[in-house]
């Protein structure tokens, strides 16, 4: 089965789970990008000896971004797993369309669901801007595993100059990325 369809199925699962947890929450492309980034890391860490995901994320000034995931989201729309609309004041709104995908695409769906569930519980209530800060911090940590909390806050603050250091620190503490 095509990889893009598999990824589209995971995306639609995220959209469905976040919508169930918080129906009013705006799920835009930023949320999908960052959630899938967190998914790749969580899944690959937890199931180290199994299939490893590689969505090809690289860092831009707006945080980690994958062109492949954008394609997969497009696929999810084309397959009618999700709907995507644009609000000029708020940006994209992605909503679930299909409750259950008729023929399950991913073979490891139980494992995927478990990870998605955990991520939605942990990060599903964050807005795009906060999630972008969290994903950027995790990206920095992935590239420098020994980094101290203060240094991490400083690097993220340098990458997100529109936010002050205190608010970045607060978000990262709340998301359990740093301790203090």
């Amino acid at each position: 089965m095509n990889w893009l369809l598999e990824e589209a199925e995971i995306i639609s699962l995220f959209v469905r789970k976040i919508s169930e947890k918080n129906p009013e929450h705006q799920i835009g492309k930023t949320i999908i990008q960052k959630m899938m980034y967190l998914f790749e890391i969580e899944y690959n860490n937890k199931y180290e000896d199994q299939k490893q995901y590689d969505f090809d994320y690289t860092l831009y000034h707006y945080g980690p971004y994958s062109f492949e995931i954008n394609q997969a989201l497009n696929m999810a729309k084309n397959m009618k797993f999700v709907s995507i609309t644009w609000n000029p004041e708020k940006g994209y709104f992605i909503k679930p369309r299909t409750i259950n995908i008729e023929n399950q695409i991913n073979e490891n769906m139980d494992q995927i669901e478990e990870i998605v569930e955990d991520l939605v519980n942990g990060y599903g209530s964050y807005y795009a801007r906060e999630l972008s800060i969290i994903a950027t911090a995790i990206y920095v940590k992935q590239h420098n595993t020994d980094i101290h909390d203060d240094d991490l806050v400083e690097i993220v603050a340098a990458l997100k100059p529109k936010y002050n250091v205190q608010s970045i620190r607060r978000i990262l503490i709340d998301a359990n990325i740093i301790n203090h």
Binding site: T30, N87, G91, Y92, A128, R129, S132
Partner: peptide, 9 residues
């Protein structure tokens, strides 16, 4: 400016 993320595009 991207309205969702407030980032420059």
């Amino acid at each position: 400016v991207n309205p969702e993320s407030n980032e420059l595009v």
